[in-house]
Amino acid sequence: MTRNRPKIVFLDDSEDLRELMPIVLQTMLGVDCMCFASVMEMENQADEVLRAKVAILDINLGPNVPDGIDAFHWLKKHGFQGKIFFLTGHARTHPQLALAQTNGVEIFEKPLHPDKLISFVSRALNETT
């Protein structure tokens, strides 16, 4: 099987979610997804990441490590042209999310229904192609 270039970047520290998300996106949307547990892992594959069309970022990635907000700034700094989503449990309360929202970022609160997730990602892929 030939793998397409991944169109979606998924950043989350949950191993279960990192295993599930590519299956969901491939099964329901037919797109490939690359998953990262930390911002550093993302940075190590900068070329691939920056070519993606959609980035889905968690915020809390563990104690004393760069979080999803840092990932967002890194993507913006390096000219990421795709659509950025935050998928977080702190959608309503994180102090910096309001700032990110003004930059066209969409924020969704966990748990997000798979149909909604697919709908948002599909719309974002259409917008960026």
Partner: peptide, 12 residues
């Protein structure tokens, strides 16, 4: 996160 895992799993 566990809720999100359940949601995605049921979706699949």
């Amino acid at each position: 996160t566990p809720l999100q895992v359940i949601e995605l799993s049921t979706g699949l």
